[in-house]
């Protein structure tokens, strides 16, 4: 059986095509403004890579903050459900999943079967997301990759005062003016975000194994800061940013076209109502 999983995130789209539990092809591209078009285009590209046509695919399940834009998908599952399914496929010992993307950070407590037992999110504020790190890298005038690398060379821990990404940029600029080493600033940025993510993770409880996924899992500086912050080892799977799409494909394989993540999803809707 050939299935597809697509994760339409705030910043990037990820697609995986699987056949009988084996990965056939995968690809990613920026989401951009025209999210629906980006999703369609990438899906077709990945299919072409695998020399397949849309008709060859039995089921496609979408996930991600803009999953509704993948009109060709037959089903949609919440991000947390996709994360749990995807991670458990790769690392069956995972119990706590930390997913930090461009626009959201979340922590999930997963059952050995890949069910979401509990989850907490950090959203609608860039302070606890990959966007924060990108903004700070821009202020440092280096790439996110370089910032990650040099932060590992830092020998000095300095606090970052600003929580907001906008104020954080000014703080980074003043640190540069004060002749602070770039590597120490880089570490301060990663420590700050790791602290916020760890607080969110503590809400669901930190239990071994802790697995980090999402775009930020590729950031070695952040992962190291997180490791120090929680005082536990963390596991980063290969292609950590494809885990959501992989989980969606796993759901497609299992015939799950809809999944409820109890407790917090309900609360999130209530939260929206409460705000309105």
């Amino acid at each position: 059986m050939i299935v597809g999983g697509i994760d339409v995130g705030g910043k990037n789209v990820h697609v995986v095509i699987m056949k009988d539990g084996e990965m056939l092809a995968k690809g990613d591209s920026p989401t951009g403004i025209q999210k629906a078009e980006a999703a369609e285009r990438l899906y077709d590209e990945v299919l072409e890579q695998a020399s397949l046509k849309r008709a060859d695919v039995e089921r496609v399940v979408a996930t991600g903050s803009a999953s509704k834009r993948a009109a060709f998908a037959q089903g949609m599952i919440p991000d947390a459900a996709a994360d749990a399914r995807g991670v458990i496929r790769l690392i069956s010992s995972a119990r706590t999943i930390i997913d930090v993307g461009a626009e959201e950070g979340r922590a999930i407590k997963a059952s050995p079967e890949g069910k979401v037992l509990d989850f907490a999110i950090n959203e609608k504020c860039a302070a606890g997301t990959g966007t924060f790190v990108e903004a700070m890298a821009r202020a440092l005038e280096i790439s996110v990759e370089d910032m990650a690398r040099i932060s590992l060379e830092s020998t000095r821990s300095i606090p970052m005062n600003a929580q907001c990404a906008v104020f954080g940029e000014s703080e980074v600029v003043s640190l540069i003016h004060a002749k602070t080493e770039k590597r120490d600033i880089a570490r301060a940025v990663h420590d700050a975000i790791a602290g916020r993510i760890a607080s969110v993770a503590r809400i669901v409880g930190l239990e071994k194994d802790v697995v980090v996924i999402g775009g930020m899992a590729r950031n070695v500086g952040f992962v190291e800061s997180l490791r120090k912050e929680i005082g536990m080892d963390v596991v980063v799977p290969d292609d950590p940013d494809f885990v959501g799409a992989l989980g969606a494909a796993a759901a497609a394989t299992a015939g799950v076209l809809e999944e409820e993540v109890e407790a917090k999803v309900v609360e999130k809707e209530k939260y929206e109502e409460g705000k309105a």
Binding site: I33, E103, K124, C125, A126, A135, A165, V166
Partner: peptide, 14 residues
């Protein structure tokens, strides 16, 4: 719709 200035920027670019 975004409160966060950084996310609002993305929305404005859109």
């Amino acid at each position: 719709s975004s409160t966060c200035v950084v996310f609002a920027k993305t929305e404005v670019v859109g």
